[in-house]
Design a protein around this nucleic acid. Structure first.
Lengths: 386, 386
DNA sequence: CTGAATAATGCTATGCACTTTACTAAATCT
DNA sequence: AGATTTAGTAAAGTGCATAGCATTATTCAG
C-alpha cells in the first residue's frame, strides 16, 4: 500500500473534481447546493465552479423567474455535451451503434442488420457505415468522440483480439482496434458481449442496486458476465465466466433440447424453433414443456457452478431467451435450490438486445472518468491514442 | 461515485498517514529518506514524523557510528510494538494461536492438539487456555490486543456463525464471537479457514506476486478460498468458493479414492491412509498410482469450474495433501489443460498448517489499517467494540 | 408604491499547511 | 586545521480554504 503525499495543488484538483462530480447527474445547481453536496465552503465552491465554466466543463444558467423569496441564484450545469462516447455491438445478426454524452444521455442510436455469414471485412465496412450515419445524424465528427467500446462474441484478449473462439466467421484473425484506429484517435477497447451486457444491467437494467452480479446470456449461445464488488471481472487472461467450456456443464448442448423438440416446424431456423417451443410450452404442449424443462436443467448446472463460486447477490437472466423468462425463472430457481447453498435473487433482463451496446457506452464513460481522476483536469478535449 | 471535498486538516491527516506508511515495513529511516518516499519536502516530513513520535506511533534512534561522510542523521522507526493482533486457527485436530505486532512480525505462537470429538465448550476452553499462554509468554494483557481473527471450517455468516455446515462437532450452535467478547473489547471476526489460508498465501506464501488467486485446500476435506483483485472474496452471503457443494463436482468423494485404495493397512486412520497411498504411489505401487490418478481427476473438475469462472493468475495447492504436491501438480495441470481455456500457474503451498492462523493475522492487521485510514490518526490505543 | 425581510453574491481579512531558501551544526576527508 | 558533505532549523513565500461583512436582487406586507 503505497501512499504519496498531497500538496495544495493536488488538493485543489481533488476539490475541482469533487465539484464536477456534484454537478454531473444533478439538475442545474446553485453554488450553495454545490457547497452542501461537496462539504466545501460556499466561496470555495464558487471559485471552483467558475473555473470549471472558463475551462468549459460547466455552463451558467442565468436566473429566470424565481419561485422563492430572496435574490434568485445563478445555476450551474455540467456541460454533458462537451464530449461523447460510442458503444458498438458487433453481433452475428446485427450491428448496433449508440452515441451518448458525458452524462450518459443517449444522443443517437442506429441498428443495421448483418448477414451471419459476412466476412470480417464486410462486417467492419458495415460498422463503419453505421458509425458514419450515427455521427452525421448527430452532427458530429470523429474527433468529438472521446472513447469507443466495441462488443463482440468470444473471449477477448487485452489487445482486443478474439483469437481463441468466436461465432463471427473469420473473426479470429480480425483486429477491430487497428481498424477503428484509422478513424478515431481516442481510446478504443474491445470487450466480450456477455461482459458488456452485465455492465449494462448494473447501469440501466434490473441490477442497479447490486454490486455482485452474474449475468447470464441465454440464447442459441450460452454465456456469462460477472460483476464483483461493482466492477467488471475480466480475469487474468480475459476469459472469466467461460464456465460453458466445462464438459460437465452442458451449456453447449442445452439449447439443443429446444431445437430437437418433437413438433418443431420443419425448416425453421434455430431461433424460430426455440421461440416456437417456448410458445408451445406456454400453450400446454407436453413435449415442449419437457424440452424446456431439460433445457433449464442443463442450464442450471452451469449457473450453479457460477453461483457457488461467487455467491452473487443477483443472477440476471438475459439474452435472446429472456423474452421467455416467465417460463424459465421459477423452474430455474427451483433447480438452483437443489445445487446451491444460498440461492441468489433471479431477475429477467429488460434491456432486450441493446445491453451490449449500452454496456459499451458505460465502459467508455468509465474510461473518460479514469482519465479525469488520474490525469489533471484539463480543458475538455478528446484524449489522444489509447 | 461520491467525492467529498478536502480541506487542510484532512490533507495533513493524509500526509501523516503517508509518512506512517513510509516508515512501516522499512528499516529505520532518515527524514530525507522519508521525504523522498512520500514526495513531501524535508521540513514537512520532519514535522510530521516528529508529531508521530509524540503521538507514540514512531520512535527516534539517535545516530551512532556513521559509515558515510557528513553529519549522521537521526533515524525514525515505526513503533511496531505499539499494538498487537491475534490470529487463531480452531481446527478439528489442533488449535493454533499466533500473535504478531503491527508490522506483522511474529511475536508468539502456540499450538495445542484438539480432540476431534470435543464439544464446542471444550474446544473454546482450550482456545482460551492457549490464548492465555500466548499472552502470558509474550508478557501482554488482553487490552494490548487490537484485533482478533478466528478461522473455522465451514461457511461463516456475517455474525461469525457457521450455521450451515462445519466439520467441528456441535459447532453450528457455537458463537465464538460472543465467547471472545467476554475477554476482548477489540474487533473480533470469524472467517472460513480456506479463505484465511488464501490470504496467507498472498501475504507470506507462494502467491505474493499475484492479485487473482484460487487457493485449493486439499485434504480429507476439499475447499477453496478466492482472492480477486487483491482482496478476499467472501460473496454476498459469505459462501463464495463452495463449489464442492455441486454434485457434478465430485469433491466430497474425491478423497475416498485414496481411503479405499487396495493395500491400505487395515485400521489406519483416514489421514494415515492417504499418506500411505501417496507414498506407495511414489514407490511405484500401481494400485496406489491409480487411486491418486482418480483423486486428481475428480479434484480437477472442481478446480476447472473455479478457474473457468474466475480466470485467476495462480492456483495454490494447499492443505494436508500439499506435502504430496510432487505427485499431484503435474497430473493436475494436465487435467486442467483438458477442461480450461487458459491454464493458470499451479504452485504448491509452503505454509504447512500455519496458513489459517497467518491469514487471520493478516485480516486482523487489515482491520487495524482500515481504522487508521477512515478514522483519524489518534494516539495508538486498542479500538473498542467491533 | 414603499419599506422590511430574505437569500444570494462579492469582497476582504485571517489562518493553515506545505515549499523554498538560507543558515547553522555535526560529522568525515584531505 | 580546513574543506566537504549532510542533517537540522528558522524565516519568508505561496496557495487554498474559511469566516465575516457589505452589497444586491427579489418577494411580501402594509
Amino acid at each position: 500500500m503505497a501512499m504519496s503525499g498531497t500538496d495544495l495543488s493536488r488538493m485543489r484538483e481533488l476539490n475541482q473534481l469533487s465539484v464536477l462530480w456534484a454537478l454531473r447527474g444533478n439538475a442545474p445547481s446553485t453554488v450553495t447546493e454545490i457547497a452542501g453536496r461537496t462539504g466545501l465552503s460556499r466561496p470555495a465552491a464558487d471559485v471552483l465552479v467558475q473555473q470549471l465554466v472558463t475551462d468549459g466543463w460547466a455552463e451558467v444558467e442565468e436566473p429566470g423567474a424565481s419561485s422563492t423569496v430572496g435574490r434568485p441564484a445563478r445555476r450551474y450545469r455540467f456541460r454533458a455535451g462537451a464530449g461523447h462516447v460510442l458503444g458498438i455491438d458487433i453481433g452475428v445478426h446485427k450491428i448496433l451503434v449508440m452515441l451518448c454524452d458525458l452524462e450518459g444521455n443517449l444522443v443517437q442510436s442506429l441498428r443495421r442488420p448483418a448477414d451471419p455469414r459476412a466476412s470480417p471485412d464486410e462486417r467492419l465496412a458495415s460498422v463503419d457505415q453505421t458509425i458514419d450515419d450515427v455521427l452525421r445524424e448527430a452532427g458530429m465528427a470523429p474527433a468529438d468522440v472521446w472513447a469507443v467500446t466495441v462488443g463482440v462474441t468470444g473471449p477477448v484478449d487485452e489487445r482486443g483480439r478474439t483469437s481463441i473462439a468466436t461465432s463471427l466467421p473469420g473473426w479470429r484473425e480480425a483486429d477491430p482496434v487497428a481498424h477503428l484506429r484509422a478513424r478515431f484517435t481516442c481510446p478504443i477497447q474491445v470487450e466480450n458481449d456477455c461482459k458488456l451486457a452485465a455492465v449494462a444491467e448494473r447501469w440501466k437494467g434490473v441490477a442497479q442496486d447490486a454490486d455482485d452480479i452474474v449475468y447470464l446470456l441465454a440464447g442459441l449461445r450460452t454465456g456469462a458476465g460477472l460483476i464483483i464488488d461493482g466492477t467488471l471481472r475480466r480475469g487474468y487472461g480475459g476469459v472469466a465466466g467461460e464456465i460453458g467450456a466445462l464438459k460437465a456443464v452442458r451449456w453447449l448442448n442445452a439449447p439443443e433440447h429446444l431445437a430437437t423438440c418433437p413438433g418443431v416446424p420443419s425448416g425453421a431456423k434455430p431461433s424460430e424453433a426455440a421461440a416456437w417451443v417456448f410458445q408451445a410450452a406456454r400453450d400446454g404442449d407436453s413435449a415442449a414443456k419437457t424440452a424446456v424443462q431439460r433445457y433449464i436443467r442443463d442450464l442450471a448446472i452451469g449457473v450453479a457452478a457460477l453461483v457457488l463460486t461467487l455467491d452473487p447477490q443477483i443472477v440476471v437472466y438475459g439474452g435472446g431467451f429472456s423474452r421467455s423468462a416467465d417460463l424459465v425463472l421459477d423452474p430455474l430457481r427451483r433447480e438452483l435450490a437443489k445445487h446451491c447453498l444460498r440461492v441468489p435473487e433471479l431477475r429477467a433482463s429488460t434491456l432486450s438486445d441493446e445491453g451490449v451496446a449500452l454496456g459499451g457506452l458505460r465502459l467508455a464513460l468509465d474510461q473518460v472518468d479514469n482519465r479525469l481522476l488520474s490525469g489533471q483536469l484539463a480543458a475538455p478535449v478528446a484524449p489522444q491514442f489509447s
